[in-house]
Each structure stands twice: as structure tokens, then as C-alpha cells.
Nucleic acid binder design. Structure first.
Lengths: 215, 215, 215, 215
DNA sequence: GATGAATGAGATTTCATTCAT
DNA sequence: GATGAATGAAATCTCATTCAT
């Protein structure tokens, strides 16, 4: 009882679970304290293993972080890419679907904290910045762009400036992220209603995307 | 050998300029690397002095940071408070004036980086969070609120929910800040046009604030 | 160059022995140089480990010092308390026994140097002063007092002023301590014969304590 | 105005007073904090001058300390030597006179703190130890010895072992010193009555020194 | 003479990473 | 595989001493 950090009995833990447990501990601490300020010893302790064990699974702090990103963010991009590739309906519905999925899979989860962390610390860890750029930003951007291309080529969207509009669609999501994680000092974000915000934003965006219908 | 007689001064005495030079170096590095990752020795070196000299002017890292905030952000709040107190025209013009001043004094300057830094690191430095909360956030919030009160009491604004609207006015500014400083990895913000954004945003906000005029 | 394959271990694993080795090194240096002037790096080196290792065992310099006190002085007080509690003979014999034990366990050992160090540096380290006061001085004083009480209540000592006499008994021991550690400059104490001194002192003290017998 | 540490008006201070003021400040702080822990900046501030000024009068910390010793302790030894040389009465009275003078000139003054400081820190500052040894200990020892020689050669004292007895006479004075300055932690010396102690001690000592008179 | 700004070596403490067991 | 003791570079902060003004 006595509140050890995690109360799973040691003997039930299977080897295969280790990476999961480590990643779970890692994402908690990275989100809570940032990359630089997270001590690997704390990660290990929270996962219920020793410091050395952590290094059996991840060569160093950066690799651990990459693994966290690969587990918590990258899969969503894959799914979204799949959606885009396979979706059969109207591009406006696809767009709405992807945005809402993003919110439920990333925005609401701890993964949003990782996103904010990158914003704050990428400058100090170029290797991490490069990795995130390639694995997340670039692919995410491409995925959004391809959605727009799909819409345009199917005649469901107007012939918009795709790179520009891609940015416009990404930015508010980043903003939501930031908001979610600024409870400490500068803005009390408890008034924020993310879903309503996303809805309103999509309406606005689609308004600009959909072909003008005759009055 | 012991006593070389070359007379180049080991240092230059320039007490009055020092604090400015140190603060300039400090804001550069804080914005570039964040609070924790900035080494005081680097600040000193960039200001052209030794480690010890820095401590003649600022007791420790946190005090240096506070001094940076006091120099780069707090005065703007004071000015804005003055504007609010002394302004004689229509509250809508006051609002526009304050927002644009914010952009030119904070948003465009390195001070916006400090704002982002607080977002990212406040959690790890409670003392700093508290300081910023009291000296900046609280005062800023009050200042915005009092602008709204002025508008309402003069009949220039509708009878809005002031605390709520205060948040709504602050948030986009924080967002601009974030955008400005996320060039590194996740979003390429080169498309962003801050002034246009602020304009659009103010139009929208004022639309909600101004009393409905008869058609 | 880079990868010499010589297999001498960078360190030797000997967890159980470490605390002892560190404490031994620490007491040596504390006694030799005092608290403030002792560098933890030197303690570590003398114990044959690196700076960092020391911190695995003791959180900081003060804790290391406390550990030294706990190991070298506190146990003696415990033993003395036991003696007082369990002793069955005449209180004069108890008193003599405790005093001589003190000399052989503390006075003759390095622990006496710790006692002198506290005298000299307590003023600069209030936390240490408090600790020593509580763990050593207070308990020691109580122990002596209770010996006197025992003597009085068993009719073996006269009805003396106990607090006062407690001081009188402690003081000469402190003096012996001081003497032992002033070899450096001011007084050459090589003439001092501690046991003879203690004997003489006890005779004198008991003369004042024992009930007057009829001539 | 401004509440400078000492409120003597700056303009009344004469140059000649400087060394005195510096020594006064220095002895205060040395006694309060010890040699190593005393910061020259504090000494200067307490004397109402700048750090640089202090160096005009004393080349470094050790020289300042020596000056303190020369001012506060050495003169007493000179006086005592004079007394010994010039005294015309019985050697027992001379001894009593010197001992009581010591108490009033050194023991009761801050100088006793210097004596304790040397005890504590001499080991870390060999140069200081050597200085003190030569200027104080050696001379003091010689002075006491010569008193004994005087007594013996005049037939007023028995033919005692002079070096040995010299130590015996010095030791209790050192003890008084120690006692005076151990108020902080280990022994509460408020019961101590120095003059009574000295009296008793002298009685005892003289008992051993004076020739046996016929019964 | 007086000042106090400037220096820089040095002390404590932290933590990613290694590796003998 | 797992452990955790050990390392050592690095960061913050202090203070005796110097020297241009």
C-alpha cells in the first residue's frame, strides 16, 4: 500500500513490458520537467528499474526521447496518412476527421506536452530538432498538404495555395498545445474549450476551402 | 619574468555601462537557450567581463533574470497602464493602441523570447514563476481588464464578461509570441504576418465589444 | 590510442566498505583542517574514490560531518547511558568508570578533534551547532546529571547542586580535549599526563561529592 | 545620514585614526568568525572604508591579523616583561600580579578570542602559527620562566623544574580562554567565575612554589 | 591617499554514462 | 539480462587581491 511510486508487484512484470514501462515513465517526466531537466535516474525509478537497465533498452537520453516520440506521436501520423490514402468520402469530412483525431490522440494526451517541449528545447538539442523535424513535422506537413491536394484534385476544394494553407491549418493546433501546457504562470487557460475551438476553426477554414456555391 | 611591465589594463572601468551590457548579453542568451541552459560564464563573456564581475551586479542567476524582465517587459506594462489612465479618446482606439504598442515593444523585440521561456520553464523554477506572475501577468491582466471596464463604464463597449474577455484578448498575443519563437523545428512560421493578424483579430474583437448600432 | 584495452577496472566495487572508508577519511581531514577548510574532494581522494562517489553516500558536507559525529561520538554517549542505567555498584565507581571510558573512547581518539572543531566553528555553522547540541551536548549533560542524581538518591553522594556540578565535571574533559589539539602553536602540551590529570581531578571531585564520614 | 554602519561623521575622521579603526573592526570579526571565515570586505565596511583602503595599510589578510595580534596581545607581554624586570617585591606577589593583569588585559578582552582562534586555525596557516609562536608563545613562555627563575634565585621559590612549571602555569589560562569562547554549543560556561578560579589556582600553585616553612 | 570595479582560482554539488558483478 | 557503484565534466557562486581612476 504505502504508496511506492508504482504498485505493480515486481514479480508479475514481464520482460516484454519493460520498454513500455520505461516509455510511460519517460513521457511523464519529459512532459513534467522538459528534456534537459529530466533525470534518467528518475525515469528508471518511476519505471521500477535501475538506471543501468534503462541503458539496456535505450543507448542514451536522446534515444529514449526519440522512442517516446516514436511511440506517442509518430503512429498518429501514420494513421492519418492511411486515412488520407484510404478515405473515400468528401475531403471536407476527411479534414474534419483528421483534425478531431489529432485532438483526441495527441492534443488530449501527454503527447501534446512533447510537442511543447520541442518548441522550447529544440534549439539546445539540434540532433533532436532534426529528428523531430524529419519524423514528425515534415511528415505531418506532407500529410496535411496531401489532404489539400486530394481536395483540390477531386474538385472538392478550391484551387488554394497549398503550402500556405497547410501552415494555416497546423498553427492553431500548435496553439492549442501551447495553451494546454501554460497553466503555471502566464495565462490561466481554464476557460479554453478545445473542441469548440477546433469546430469553429474548421468551419472557418472550410469556408475558405469549399468552392463557392451559387446563392 | 615575474613582473612583465606591459601596461594594457586587465579591464576597463565602466561601471555605469555594465548593467546594460550584462542585461543585453543575458537577454540574448536567455532567449537563445532558455533559463536553465544559459551559463552565467557565457553571459559574462558575451558582455566582455569575467564571471565574478557579473556577481557584482546581480546576486545570482534568478536575480539576473528578474532584472532582464524588469528591463524588457515591466516598463511596457507601466506605459500601458499610463495610457489607460490618461487616454482621452474612444476605448476602441485605446485598445488598438495598446495592442499595437505591445507588438512593437514586446512582440517584435527579444522580450517576446522571455515570454516564451517562462511558458517553457516556469514549472522548473517556481520562484521565477511567482515573480513573473506578480510583476507581469497579474499587472498585465489588470491593465487589460481596466481597459474593458473603462469602455463599458463609458458606454463605449457592451456590458461584456470582463474576466473572460481579458483572457480572450491576451491569448492571441501569447500565440504570436510562441509562433515567433518556433522557427527551429516544428512549424515554419515565415508566412506569419503579425500586424495583419493583430488587425484582423482586433476587428473581430471590437465587433464583439462595440454596442450594436442601429442598421 | 583511443581504445586501450587494458582491463584495469576504473574502480572497485565495495559498497559495504565505502561508508567506513569515507568516514575514516573525513574524520582525519576534519580533525586536521576543521570543517570549513576541509575540501570534499580531498576526503574523496583520501578514501580512494572520486568526488561524485562521496555524494552517493552523503548528501552534502554537513551530512558527512553529522555521520562522523554519529559514528565517533554518539555511540559513546549511548554506552555511557547504558552504564548509568545498569550499573549496580557505588556511584563513585560509576563516575570513575564513565570518566575513564570517555578518555579511552573519545579523548584518546580522533573524536576529541571533532569536539575541538565544534568549539571553534559552531558559530559559523548554526545547523551543525544545533545538531551537535542535540545529539551530543544535551545527551551528555543529561547522562552526567543522571549519574549525580543516582548518587544522591542512593545516599552515596551529598545533596549537591546537580546542574552546577554537571558543568564542573564536564569542563575539565573539554579542557583535556583542547590541550590535546593545541600542539601546533600556542602551548606545547607534551608534558600533559591525561590519566594522572583525570585521576587527580576525580579525587578532588569525589572529595566534594562523598558524604562526610566521621573522623 | 543614510545609516552607514558606523555613524561617525566622515569628515571628523583623521587619517591617523584609520589603522586603529581597521584593527578594531578586524579584531571584532576575527573573534566572531575566525580567520579564514572573515571577509576583508566586511572588515573594511565595518571600519567605514573601502576594501582598497585596507590594503593601503595592510598588505594582506595575514598582515592584518598580525597587526591585530601586535596591538592586542604583544603589548601585554612587553608590560609583563617590564614588570618582571622591574618588580622589587616578593616573587609570589609578582606572579599574582602578572596573572591578574593577564586576566584583565587579555582574558576579559577580545584578545582572548584571538588566542582561541589560533588554537583552532593555526594548522591551516603555518605562517601565522610561526608568527604567533615567535611573538607571543615564545616570549610569554620566557617571561613566565624568568619569573620562576627570579623566585628561585632570590630564594623565594623552591628549586622547581622551571620548564615544566611554566607549562603548568600557562595551561589554566588557556583553559579560561577556551571556556570564555565556547558559549555557542558544547558547554554552557555561565557558571564559570574566572577570578575565583584564578585565585584558587594561584593559591595552589604557590603552595607548591613557596619554600616549606617550619611548622 | 582613497576608491571600488574587476579578476579568476577554487569550492560545492549534479547527473549522464559506464561497467564489474 | 539486471544492477547500481563509480566516474568526472560542468555549473553556480565566493572572495582575496589588484589597479585604473
Amino acid at each position: 500500500m504505502e504508496c511506492s511510486i508504482d504498485s505493480k508487484p515486481r514479480w508479475e512484470r514481464r520482460k516484454d513490458a519493460r520498454p513500455q514501462e520505461l516509455l510511460a515513465a519517460a513521457i511523464d517526466l519529459f512532459v513534467e520537467r522538459g528534456f534537459a531537466a529530466t533525470r534518467l535516474e528518475d525515469v528508471a525509478r518511476r519505471a521500477g528499474v535501475s538506471k543501468g537497465t534503462l541503458y539496456l533498452y535505450y543507448t542514451n537520453k536522446e534515444e529514449l526521447f526519440k522512442a517516446v516520440v516514436r511511440e506517442s506521436i509518430v503512429p498518429f501520423i501514420g494513421e492519418a496518412e492511411m486515412s488520407v490514402a484510404e478515405f473515400e468520402g468528401h475531403s471536407a469530412d476527411l479534414l474534419r476527421h483528421v483534425m478531431l483525431s489529432w485532438w483526441s490522440r495527441i492534443g488530449q494526451s501527454k503527447a501534446s506536452g512533447i510537442s511543447k517541449l520541442i518548441l522550447a528545447e529544440a534549439g539546445n538539442f539540434p540532433e533532436l530538432a532534426k529528428f523531430y523535424q524529419e519524423e514528425v513535422t515534415r511528415r505531418g506537413t506532407r500529410m496535411i498538404s496531401s489532404m489539400l491536394e486530394r481536395g483540390v484534385s477531386r474538385g472538392e476544394f478550391r484551387n488554394v495555395d497549398i503550402p500556405q494553407l497547410t501552415q494555416v491549418l497546423i498553427a492553431p493546433m500548435m496553439m492549442l498545445n501551447t495553451w494546454k501546457h501554460c497553466a503555471v504562470a502566464p495565462c490561466d487557460a481554464h476557460e479554453l474549450q478545445p473542441l469548440a475551438f477546433i469546430d469553429a476553426f474548421l468551419d472557418m477554414a472550410l469556408h475558405g476551402l469549399l468552392p463557392r456555391t451559387a446563392p
